[in-house]
Structure formats: C-alpha cells, structure tokens
C-alpha cells in the first residue's frame, strides 16, 4: 500500500483527495469482510451437527471466497494508477454474486 502511495505522489497529476487509494483500501476491507464470513461458514460446517450435505456447501463457500479475492486483486492492481479505469459491470456483478453465494452456503449449512 505504501508503495502505491509513493508512486502516486511522484506523478504530477495525482488526485489530492487520494481517491484511488481510498478505493483500494475499501476493496481490502471488503476482502477482509468476505474472509471473515467464509471462515464463519467453514466453522459452522466443522462444528455443525454431523450432516450429509455439508461438503458441497463448504466447497462452494471456499470457491466464492477465491472468486472474490481474484476479482478484488485485479481491481486493486487496476487502481494503483493515478487515473484508474472505471469499475466494470462484470467485476461488480461477480463480487456481488460471490458475496451472495457465501450467504447461500450459510443458508444450506444452517438450515
């Protein structure tokens, strides 16, 4: 993160409001939130009453986490330029689907 900051302050047309940095940190916070939710999902499966359909749900949660991390990483890299490109619809939909998938796995594990 400090690397990105140094790179931006070196360029003449950096944004004094540090918008790309703030957006990048927002992506990191969100990645952390997905991680916590996924860990809780796995924990629910591990501590749960022995059921049959738990393995697919756990795999699904881990896959959703992985998908989110990949998209977030790509976006974080795209944001390390002084004038970053817009967030694509594809990335927005993918992240939202991954988050909803974690919730769906939770419903399968809880119910």
């Amino acid at each position: 993160m400090s690397g990105g900051l140094a790179r931006c302050s070196g360029s003449p047309d950096r944004d004094p409001g540090l918008q790309p940095e703030r957006t990048r940190l927002a992506w990191r916070r969100t990645t952390l939130a997905v991680t916590v939710a996924s860990v809780l999902a796995v924990r629910t499966a591990l501590h749960g009453r022995a059921g049959s359909g738990e393995l697919p749900a756990v795999a699904c949660a881990i896959l959703a986490w992985l998908g989110f991390v990949v998209v977030a990483h790509q976006r974080i890299r795209a944001l390390s330029t002084p004038r970053p490109p817009l967030l694509t619809h594809r990335a927005a939909l993918l992240t939202a689907i991954c988050a909803a998938l974690v919730a769906a796995c939770g419903a399968a594990l809880v119910g």
Binding site: A33, V34, L40, R43, A99, V102, G106, L109
Partner: peptide, 21 residues
C-alpha cells in the same frame, strides 16, 4: 459506496452465522 453496501451484506451474513453458532 457499492463496496460499503457489500460489507453491510457480509456483516449481515456473519451475523446469521453468529446466531447459529
């Protein structure tokens, strides 16, 4: 703002797991 809503969603999901666990 989009990401903040996503985090709100994830916090709610976490809350669901917390109630269960």
């Amino acid at each position: 703002t989009f990401l903040a809503w996503l985090r709100t969603a994830l916090a709610l999901v976490g809350g669901g797991f917390a109630v269960d666990q």
